[in-house]
């Protein structure tokens, strides 16, 4: 197995051009190293961790620019993320152990494109954009277009994720990220639900409700029908119940060794209800009646 440590993005891209499918990009290594141990080795490893300036977290054009090599712990420690992107902060905070958070990068979490990736549903709900770079140039695209399937992204084998641009959520919005796993943060999510909403002027109804679901479809997904169902309405117990069932019907979870698809559906239902209730309470100061 060959090993490369490119010092620039261009150098990395030319290695990817050269080695194509044979190449595996590694940054934090928390997934790749495990793969190498338990399955066949890739033809070569391209370690991008040494490329400078790809771990910035800074304000940019009415939002936050995050370099893909920023570690999960750097996100968790960032005042900017904590204050302005509390949804992403919450996902980072529930992301495995401190040792893993110190090593794993947000770019790795994204490019792995595991439906259960902790930051993915929040990025969909925040309507963030991916900066993707190929040897013939760079472009930006919404994450809703970026994720193609489990482990598959629009990067293919020759692109690099070079930035994540997250617009600031609307003033007065509230968001929660709810993760369900047997061991809580110390475990891979069976279901992750991100809910974000604002309230209308007189706090009598929710506006712009966004719901992101993780680990319950081939990619992280939004739940557009459920969002439409509750947006512009006052939440009551009946509507919350209906929304939970609706979100579950918008998911398509599989059965694996962690849990059955049926159970994952029940949890989407429960966490969607919980997320909406929490947003309602935070935005209106009232309990769902």
């Amino acid at each position: 197995m060959d090993y490369f440590e490119p010092k620039t993005v261009d150098e990395a891209l030319s290695l990817l051009d050269q080695h194509g499918e044979q190449a595996e990009v590694i940054a934090g290594g928390t997934d790749v190293m495990v793969d190498i141990k338990y399955s066949d080795e890739p033809g070569c490893l391209v370690n991008i961790k040494r490329i400078p300036d790809l771990n910035a977290i800074r304000e940019s054009n009415g939002g936050v620019h995050i370099g893909p090599l920023a570690t999960i712990h750097e996100l968790e420690e960032s005042e900017l993320v904590r204050k302005r992107l509390p949804l992403l902060w919450s996902a980072a905070h529930q992301f495995a152990s401190l040792q893993i958070r110190n090593t794993a990068t947000i770019g790795g979490n994204i490019c792995r494109a595991s439906p259960s990736g902790e930051t993915l549903a929040p990025l969909l709900v925040l309507e963030a954009e991916a900066e993707v770079t190929f040897s013939d140039g760079a472009r930006t695209e919404p994450f809703s277009a970026f994720f193609k399937g489990p482990g598959e992204t629009s990067l293919g084998s020759k692109g690099l994720l070079t930035g994540i641009n997250v617009p600031y959520p609307a003033d007065g919005s509230h968001a929660v990220y709810l993760k369900h796993a047997v061991r809580g943060p110390m475990d891979i999510a069976m279901v992750g639900v991100a809910v974000m909403a604002t309230a209308n002027a007189d706090k009598s109804a929710l506006d712009d409700v966004r719901i992101g679901l993780g680990a319950v479809a081939p990619t992280p997904v939004r739940a557009p029908k459920t969002e439409a169902l509750v947006s512009g309405k006052a939440l009551d117990a009946a509507l919350v119940k209906e929304a939970g069932a609706s979100a579950a019907s918008e998911s398509s979870p599989i059965t694996d060794q962690r849990s059955s698809g049926e159970y994952r559906g029940w949890i989407v239902d429960a966490l969607t209800r919980r997320g909406l209730e929490q947003c309602w309470q935070a935005l209106t100061g009232k309990e769902v009646a």
Partner: peptide
């Protein structure tokens, strides 16, 4: 065996 590694074989962590 579907869960041979500690990724999938869940031993309790201290938070549990």
């Amino acid at each position: 065996t579907l869960n041979p590694t500690f990724v999938d074989y869940l031993m309790p962590t201290i938070n549990m």
